[in-house]
Amino acid sequence: MKKIGMAIALSLSMVLPAMADTYPSRPITWIVPFAAGGITDLTSRKIAEVLTEKLGQSVIVENKPGAGGFVGTKEASLAPADGYTVVYGSSGPLSISPALDPSKVTYDPVKDFDWVHGITASPQIIVASTNMPFNTIEELVDYAKENPGKINFGSPGNGTAQHLGGELLKKAAGIDMVHVPYKAGATQMVDLASGVIDLSFEYASVVAPYVEEGKMKVIGTTGTARSPKFPDAKTVVEAGFPDAVNVGWTIVGVPAGTPAEIKQKLNEVLGEAMADERIVKMLEANAQGRLENVDATNGNEYVAKEIEKYRALGVSAQ
């Protein structure tokens, strides 16, 4: 064993200086801070597959779930800054939690990472129980003003992008609604379908089966553009509440201090991968948008701005 260790150390010392030119010369680990089988995991695996082809080296997805993404993101921040560990970051652990509950976050989402390429950006669909009298965002706001504090909105947990979707609309429209947190998205949808809660801000792929069966109705979207899946639903911008725009996003990054050439290389291949037909089709099928115009030059700036946006909301995680 010792001999092998020595051999590895020796070969590493020879490889390191020349690393940037030959990158990647060994498999890359792609950390997903969420459990296998979820949407972040599935998206990651598909992109990793395309990257493996483009880089000529295996990109291995490793799930490090726990504490809403904290565990995996923290782990990635501690990895060597050599480009062989990349992390699939997302708005929850990178912007919402650092803004709302900074004491829990043990890494700095801006200083500990170099973000290299934006991946997805998905607005939430605003869905309501069929018992509710309103059918559009404007009607919802009017109803909420007439009945302050009467409306309940569900979310898959405190400090999730879906929870913030509701909080942002509350603030932008000056209405009062009560947040009812759940442990998982599925239970929340079932409760909305049977009228236990009134409203929810959820992703298109989650609400679609219920909407198709007529168990809930779509009244709007938190995006800047209409959802291709529900083109009749107005955006919060159209309804006159541009401050209620809320998008759950994902971004790929490396630990801070990674050589610039490596970041440039990753930025390039990720750009190619995002244009790949397989990725385009997958995003369409999952009703996910893409995080455009975020790359190695402005990634950290984007994350910092998002943190500011949520901090300005002035809510703590209840």
Binding site: G66, T106, P181, Q318
Partner: peptide, 20 residues
């Protein structure tokens, strides 16, 4: 772990791995 309703931590002593 994390209390669902309030989002607060209980009995985790700050250990991230116990948040769930």
């Amino acid at each position: 772990g994390t209390d669902i309703t309030s989002g607060d931590e209980r009995f985790t002593f700050g250990a991230t791995k116990l948040f769930d």
